[in-house]
Design a protein around this nucleic acid. Sequence first.
DNA 1: GAGGTTAATATGTGCAGACATAATAACAAA
DNA 2: TTTGTTATTATGTCTGCACATATTAACCTC
Lengths: 236, 236
Amino acid sequence: MRSDPPTPPTGWQAIRDEALRRIQSREWQAGAPIPNEAELAMQFGCARSTVNRALRELAAIGLIERRRKAGSRVARHPLRKATFEIPIIQHEVEARGGRYDFTLIARNLGPAPVAASSRMGLPAGAEMLHLQALHLSDGRPYMHETRWVNPVAAPGILDVDLARVSANAWLVQNVPYTRGELTLSAAAADGTRAEALGCAQGEAIFCMERITWIGEAPVTLVIQSYAPGHRMTTAI
Amino acid sequence: MRSDPPTPPTGWQAIRDEALRRIQSREWQAGAPIPNEAELAMQFGCARSTVNRALRELAAIGLIERRRKAGSRVARHPLRKATFEIPIIQHEVEARGGRYDFTLIARNLGPAPVAASSRMGLPAGAEMLHLQALHLSDGRPYMHETRWVNPVAAPGILDVDLARVSANAWLVQNVPYTRGELTLSAAAADGTRAEALGCAQGEAIFCMERITWIGEAPVTLVIQSYAPGHRMTTAI
DNA sequence: GAGGTTAATATGTGCAGACATAATAACAAA
DNA sequence: TTTGTTATTATGTCTGCACATATTAACCTC
């Protein structure tokens, strides 16, 4: 049940861990400066660059703050960061031991509602491809997805048979994005989603919304609604 | 409105960006190997370690996959990672321009319900401190928090006036954790939370659950329920 | 062929030294 | 006191080199 590495790390990771230990044991107090890199290099008998590497990793996870000339100090408010992997639905389902499948519920090309176009920064009534799909695990509804695709940014998508290839899979392979925004929220299941997910209307569902851009052009807005009870977990 | 750095990056960041550009322009195709570090160092006229640094960053965000001897290749499924900062409520509220305040609703020392103790891996009926608090923004409910604290791992907390100092603030300053787990989900507001948050019972609320350990000992389990409409956003 | 051994190779990490840069402290001038 | 200038300092980064290590490819034996 233990997932720790059996052998203790060496090199820069050992130094990172030792620094971690000193922080956690309050040997290095919150808010207080820690010895500078050169001194730590002496203590650990290694090069400064090795210490630098170790401390840089700690700074990356928000445990220490570093400033030139001022040195490094233990973060007073360990503004820790949590990292989630943005799931690829098929993998996620299969990792849970389910058989993956998906159904294209709707496909319409036409003017998008203002709610969608404005989220994407496009003029009202812009022509967009609207898709609705249901992702299944062992034949049971797993996640409902409603998506708008800007055909200007992803022209090829109009010729794809999206009942065979999921829009996400196609986009990821064919229209790499340069920037994106991800929003998590909770929402009550409306009629459409309740029906698709097979749950009661008004039930609380976990939503993940993504917008991606290629350069300045918005590519797609997707709202994924998970079946009730879905949880997204990560180690911190 | 533009947040890009005005001056283009130099050094390893320039190389990272150039590699990024080649991936996004499909000059380096998804799934295909990219030139090895030594060759790229030649191309860019820099040392291999500089290329190494750049590619390591790209690997860290999941855009390329690296294996010894096999070399680096563009990830076929850009399993991108999203990083959220775990919010410190006071800062979050103030960043949104609100005035922060909080109220301790309940404080009980006694055997914890099985749901809580089992989540923390403690025997049923273990003695724990149970707290309920409401965090306010401009006097309006912002987030409801229910928390169990293991007094064995955080003994000092029993003597703290938790109506003045929030449990989170005290714990963060006094009991650094070595490991944690964070879970996001959606839930329907039960009676307690609906009343506290001033919303209808059954309304969908966004929940963040955290468990932290110090060594092998569980420290605290906290379930934070945000007022309806809360959204958690990050750039990817 | 199947299976095992050996060599080749790309990345991972280390070192010492150098200079760049940001932020501070010390100092001087108004 | 305030303001501007000049060191000083710790981190940021780069270089060139070296060796470690994981993984593959080539080879050899049966």
